[in-house]
Design a protein around this nucleic acid. Sequence first.
DNA 1: TATCTGTATTAGATAGAGTAATACAAAAGA
DNA 2: TCTTTTGTATTACTCTATCTAATACAGATA
Lengths: 121, 121
Amino acid sequence: MIIRIDELSDIPIYMQIRNQIVMGISDGSLAPGEQLPTVRALALEIGINTMTVSKSYQLLKTEGYIMTDRKNGARVRTTIEKQGSISESNKAELKRIVSEARLSGVPKKEIIGLVDGYYGA
Amino acid sequence: MIIRIDELSDIPIYMQIRNQIVMGISDGSLAPGEQLPTVRALALEIGINTMTVSKSYQLLKTEGYIMTDRKNGARVRTTIEKQGSISESNKAELKRIVSEARLSGVPKKEIIGLVDGYYGA
DNA sequence: TATCTGTATTAGATAGAGTAATACAAAAGA
DNA sequence: TCTTTTGTATTACTCTATCTAATACAGATA
């Protein structure tokens, strides 16, 4: 899986990495149990510091998306805990996005179409 | 319209103000042409610096949501330019949110239901 | 033994956010 | 004319988050 960093984005690098891995797990680019690149390999590939990647992995570990240990490196968890609900902050973000889209004249159907595509089958 | 600031949020105050005004315009809490509180009044009410509110208004003005002048203060624009499309950053955010919701076991219908509610009639 | 893994530590640089104290131009009202 | 109110500009300062850098460590592997 290829991680791409947007230097101009105001989203922190460690967060961009985290987000892309989460989305990769969701859309199947990263299979359950699949091994992630080592912190050093990914840091070298992207051209950033090792600790920045480590921070991403720690976050993903805390959130229950991956497992890390000194033996196997980092891997996607085979079973991810399902909260069953959307976080309040994500609801607020969703509302903001929908509001902006609506004011921009984007039809409701178009937004729902995007959600449908991102969610998948 | 009441602006509420979450001190614990990692979203900057000026951005929280901006977001709530945008959402207020979208859901009708703020009518076209309606006058917004003055920067000093809002700053006093929230308990923050005047320039922070001014920064929010400048951003909203740049984005075409409101108009400001020394005569009338700040007002919601009567006609907001419609881009007709969703920004790339909002698409990325939407994908992240949908991915997280999906991995949390949230049904697609539930997300669409939220979008439907936020968008309104 | 040498090499790989994630991680901890300490330090420093940089940028963004927010505050504070003033000040200004323009318009409105007394 | 004088005062008030409007948004805004300026300058300086503090605080925090992010990222980098250079090491080092424990544990596992070949």
